[in-house]
Design a protein around this nucleic acid. Structure first.
Lengths: 153, 153
DNA sequence: CCTCTCTAGTTCCTTAAAGAGACTAGACTG
DNA sequence: CAGTCTAGTCTCTTTAAGGAACTAGAGAGG
């Protein structure tokens, strides 16, 4: 299959998806968050083919989401960079949506917040602290808007 | 290419990705949020092939993320269901990550919150209101945990 | 030192999904 | 009643994913 890179759309969602939107990628990142740092651990956990895992890990390292760090005994392992750690929010909201709409037996994983309770996180405005939802925000053009929308044509 | 369905991993992220993790899908949903409800509008905006768009829209309708609603003049258009509207959080955090890490000229789109300011949303605990981040939550098994981890073997 | 194993890949082959573009059915338009 | 517009469907080609076999390099054991 050919696959059109999305970067030509001037859109942060498209640019993010070019990195984290490939099949398996977000699950690999989830695994690294869950403490699986070695190639074979991740491969076994996901049942992914070595070829695809190699490919995805390389892409993530190239884009600075993961880094390879040497460990004792000459091997290396994969660790999240700061850029990678900041994907935590993505995992949380994707998980919560799946918990709500696709998990009839209840969430497989719950998150315990430092306040001591199982949390369901919501998006809050950094200015007023109130909830951010589809019904109370309005998109507008930002500084990076409409610089070439499509490359061709 | 063959593509392994992810549902056999007992994971809400995997189950979400089976629906919204396919190439183009999140951008299609973004377009519907942005007011593009018709097949040709979306196709033209994204430059996606008709075949793939048809396929994605059908999948989303099947999974209850979009619904086809009749409009005047005998045509139909695609609208978000409640399940679809709740993907707003996913779009917000994916966009913000791309804004931060992949948009050197600044965000193409900004969100104005009803409080009157351009907002950068953060995840807040529904219990205490404090931020939820990788460093202050601990995952634990929930009610739906470890019911068959892999289907085979 | 030599063999064995273990990790992290690489290579090869097959299957199927995406891209591109031509074609089509059904509704509406002049 | 011919032409157009919308929302597809069909066909062909390219290429990514799956699966399995093979490999290089480090370490372990005798």
């Amino acid at each position: 299959m050919q696959r059109t890179p999305l970067e030509s759309l001037n859109c942060s969602i498209a640019r993010s998806l070019d990195i984290i939107g490939e099949w398996w990628t977000l699950l690999i990142i989830r695994d690294v968050f869950m403490g699986l740092h070695r190639f074979e651990q991740i491969r076994e956990d996901l049942g992914i083919s070595r070829k695809v895992l190699t490919d995805r890990l390389n892409t993530l390292v190239e884009h600075g989401v993961l880094k390879k760090v040497p460990i004792e005994k000459g091997f290396e392992e994969y660790r999240l960079t700061r850029k990678g750690v900041e994907l935590h929010d993505v995992l949380v909201v994707v998980r919560q949506w799946g918990d709500k709409w696709e998990s009839p037996q209840g969430p497989p994983i719950e998150l315990v917040h430092d306040c001591g309770h199982v949390t369901t996180a919501f998006l809050a405005c950094d200015c007023c602290g109130e909830e951010v939802s589809a019904s109370n925000v309005t998109p507008q053009a930002g500084p990076g808007h409409s610089r070439v929308r499509k490359t061709s044509k």
